[in-house]
Nucleic acid binder design. Sequence first.
DNA 1: TGACATTGGTGACGAATTGTTACTAATTCG
DNA 2: CGAATTAGTAACAATTCGTCACCAATGTCA
Lengths: 223, 223
Amino acid sequence: MKPSVRRTTLAVDVVVLSPRLEALAVLLVRAPAGARERWSLPWDAPQAGEGLEDAASRIARAALGAAPAFFEQVGTVADGRRHPGEADVSVGIAALAPAEVGAKIEDAEWFALSALPSLAPRHRIIVDRAAAVVRQRVDQSPLAFRLLAPTFTLSELQGVYELLLGRRLHKASFRRALQASYLVEPTDEWRSEGRGRPAQLFHYAPRKRRGARRGVRFDLFTE
Amino acid sequence: MKPSVRRTTLAVDVVVLSPRLEALAVLLVRAPAGARERWSLPWDAPQAGEGLEDAASRIARAALGAAPAFFEQVGTVADGRRHPGEADVSVGIAALAPAEVGAKIEDAEWFALSALPSLAPRHRIIVDRAAAVVRQRVDQSPLAFRLLAPTFTLSELQGVYELLLGRRLHKASFRRALQASYLVEPTDEWRSEGRGRPAQLFHYAPRKRRGARRGVRFDLFTE
DNA sequence: TGACATTGGTGACGAATTGTTACTAATTCG
DNA sequence: CGAATTAGTAACAATTCGTCACCAATGTCA
């Protein structure tokens, strides 16, 4: 019994995530008239010779008006659930964009993850996986910094972590841990944001990692 | 510009991992005569109506003689690198099997990750990704327990963690952390393994998690 | 049979990390 | 000016972690 490839139809479905509407939000595009749902994820097929992440970049740019700086696959689905273009196989890709990025595009809108409209079942699954992957990778990868402009205040950074983790964090502990990690450097700019003391701006500048190997952590299991 | 799906050829490529040969090892199958490489990952196309993980299970069973209990996607590749079946798109799936599982199958052999034979470039990438994903998820998911028989000694468990992490662990710390996590329960069986005191057997039995929410960890970044 | 090597298992101490409280600093509002 | 608000930090207490030292139970071998 010899293995063989199989012909199928393929789509790339992109979950653009950004902190908007006081929450983590997804960018959806208005579906063409006659579709079962009014909204869908931005999607398309990869062009000949185009890598999956390249395709995701192009698709996100068409919906957002700018190319996100970060992409990550969140799983490939081929389980028969309905896709808006009837693709047999979907590659789901999460893209992260800072709050400031993106023009006002006709027929695209932000929806908080907690208040999504009806989506094709395939797209619903991909959004859920994207949210889960992003939340799970938050403390293994500098994802949170991809949701901020190049310079940011520490309160903004903490706010992004709170969005992603869904809980409040303690200011002093957060800053001490950040300090110890050598991930950010202060600039000499300050930003005054209405009332209260102005905040210093920082930028992401990870320094060489000392190999502080820790023991095994059994308390981080999520399943 | 309306999105549309595209016809391509698809394969599922499976990386079966198991602790063998005193290391983490991959199961490879002998390639048919005339192929560019002598060995390849077990692979095939998913059958009509068959989910990707179902296909991975079938493919792994054909090579291993038993179905692994755990699968995880490690990324989909469509970058033009050569695949043994010339598939445009490959879905890479990692499967974990305990050391005891699997019959002696004709034309399949274990290779330590550190001593792989020459593979098609597509397969090489998928093996590397599988190893990276497994290592990265070791302390978020009970992966290590999938590489052990249903009952095991604490030394065996520690050994698996040492294989996955590539470093020695301290016995007392390892056990204290495990104890605090309520992940295993002792059985009333003991196993005598040559010389030395017999070891008590445990099984994986995670208990309800107390929500001991910790602060943000910036020291786990891997990129 | 009795040292000794070998592997399993645990108590306890000091060091490091973390959660928290409480404070100081710099700004806007009235 | 004082109150309110947001930024930032010192310092203490509680907890966790790395390590050392030890005891337990078995096989080996003189």
